[in-house]
Design a protein around this nucleic acid. Structure first.
Lengths: 193, 193
DNA sequence: ACGCAACATGTCTGTACTTACATGTCGTCG
DNA sequence: CGACGACATGTAAGTACAGACATGTTGCGT
């Protein structure tokens, strides 16, 4: 239930509407925890029912801004301090690597090149963003500094994956001469791919 | 729908039962894509109905082994070659970093130390496992080599995160003197957009 | 003969999440 | 004044996934 606490965490910075929160999820948090607006709106309704947030104001275009309550703030702090971190993660890129042996070696090379480019680009974009923070363009609040720390993790992970894709591309572990050697179905021969 | 293709990929190595597949998911793939047995059994039923796998044999204890069909093998290859990689990933560790500013600085230091230890330990375990593969203790099939590549990604990611936790612990971005300065509700308001 | 652990396969219920659809508001540009 | 785009909030339907519960089998130790 990270979405619940993510919303509380964002509301701890100040009041916001469902629309605002959806935007911030897609911008900043989306890369580590995707969330679509229907889920956000329904979670907000539940959080309000639980007394962890309350409606602060209603603006134009029937905008409803929520504010975190004392209970909500206590709850997000409790989560951060007491709840064990779930270290399992989902990453399709890595998952696919287990099945590289099923790929045509040329396709695999192309795949690894494009993955390398993707991660290098992402790392560069994040690094650029981090540098604007380091120049103080976003102020020096604790929130900004926490963001900077999260950003650093993003940079390092993307750099690590770019390096990995590069390494995998260069290594000859999956060289062409071996393709077709594998026997996927025991003694039954492999159908022509 | 990665689980579907993951099962096909595992079955491409040879026939296996739901029980086998559940075990392999929890051992090798579980760290990048967790899957519980009920989901695996129901997915297998669907895959069989779709003609992508078929029952190969029934053993003792009503064990049912499945075999991938030609259509199934074609489908997993099509997935690997044609379907765009989904680069979004979920990682609670990183998600929490956005909310570090809500934590007591001493708790945060302790948290970062334990995260650092966890990632360093995980990286070391994976590195040890990789070395047994490099010594050829698992043969040199293409499957083994693909596994080795996946393992390398795991090592690098965990090392990157260990390094990050170390860096975050040493940096003074979240030092104690600032705690309590933040104004979670009210006049401090939202960061300028 | 009995019990127990590991093997093996499922159902059921509830929650998390995605996608598509539906609706209404406000400002502005032509 | 009419169209349009950005703002803003939701419902509905379906899939993915997790956790609890249920059931039967086989081998082994005692």
């Amino acid at each position: 239930m990270s979405l619940r606490h993510g919303l509380l965490g964002l509301l701890a910075e100040g009041p916001a509407s469902g629309y605002d929160l959806a935007r911030r999820f897609s911008e900043a948090l989306g890369s580590v925890w995707p969330a679509q607006h229907p889920q956000i709106y329904s979670e907000l309704t539940r959080l309000e029912a639980a007394g962890l947030i309350e409606v602060e104001s209603t603006g134009p275009r029937r905008r409803k801004a929520y504010r975190i309550t004392d209970e909500g703030l206590a709850e997000v702090r409790r989560w951060l301090a007491e709840v064990e971190v779930d270290h399992t993660f989902r990453m399709e890129t890595l998952f696919r690597a287990y099945f590289f042996w099923l790929m045509d070696p040329e396709d695999l090379k192309a795949h690894l090149r494009s993955e390398q480019a993707f991660f290098a680009d992402t790392a560069a974009a994040l690094r650029g963003y981090a540098e604007t923070k380091d120049r103080g363009e976003w102020g020096t609040s604790t929130q900004t500094r926490a963001m900077r720390i999260a950003l650093e993790a993003g940079i390092r992970i993307n750099e690590a994956l770019a390096g990995w894709a590069q390494w995998a591309h260069e290594t000859d572990l999956m060289s062409a001469e071996d393709f077709g050697t594998a026997k996927p179905e025991g003694d039954a021969g492999e159908p022509a791919g």
